[in-house]
Amino acid sequence: MAGNSLIHISDLVTHFGDKCVHDGINLDVRKGEILVIMGGSGSGKSTLMRCLLGLKAPSSGSVQLLGQDLFRSNRKQLVELRRQMGVAFQGGALFGSMTVGENVCLPLREHTRLDPNTMRIMARMKLEMVNLGGAENLMPAELSGGMIKRAAFARSMIMDPKLLFFDEPSAGLDPITSAELDELILRIRDAMQTTIVVVTHELESAFRIADRITLLHAGKILMTGSVEEVQASDNQHIQDMLKRKPRSEAFDVDRYLSQLTGDRVSRQ
């Protein structure tokens, strides 16, 4: 394992029931870089994120965060590790019974003994960073989709984590808000030297923020490289993805027919 990589995935294999989701993933994320994990629907990128967060156990292989094996840690080590991580989920995952301010403060209240006044100022600073100044007393139900996402950003950063994970930050947002979030991700990295992993399927945003891009396809990594390297790749799947072409898989007439008339075929 390289000395400066904060995330180290080796030979990761995961299953959902009998279905294989990942088939031997190897990946390193270096300190202070923004790594974008890309892939179409069903490519396993969300599940890979869940593995990185310790929410889904792999069938084999290992995930190391900050030099510690995620799935061989005891509860106490896991808590210690997760205090240095921040996650913004796709749907925001804000708690409906708390105001935005309370949502953002929650990790502080649970893990630190700071003065309530300090916590409030910290929450307001983070909300200010995501352009949500003054929204701290609103309830999540009063927020728009973009605001929920930004509030989730603020919450993920409240503990000044070393590792930040963003799940589909720009999904379902208008182009301007999504560009703002991209800017924000870049600024956070520059100011705090945070290592950031972003899962997305938005090409544009990926090219803007990524130091390196990892392309997933059918449970395998097609390639990991800089934006230029990805653009220059001559792999068919990558080019399809870049040109937004529909999947060009080999067309099997018999299989297609039996798919359409499935019941009959099996009854023969």
């Binding site: 502080l108 630190t112 700071l114 006044n117 300090t118 916590m119 100022i121 910290m122 600073m125 983070k126 409240i158 000044d160």
Partner: peptide, 11 residues
């Protein structure tokens, strides 16, 4: 300096 430190300065 982390944000709790900065928050203390603001206070």
């Amino acid at each position: 300096i982390d944000s709790s430190g900065v928050a203390s300065l603001v206070e």
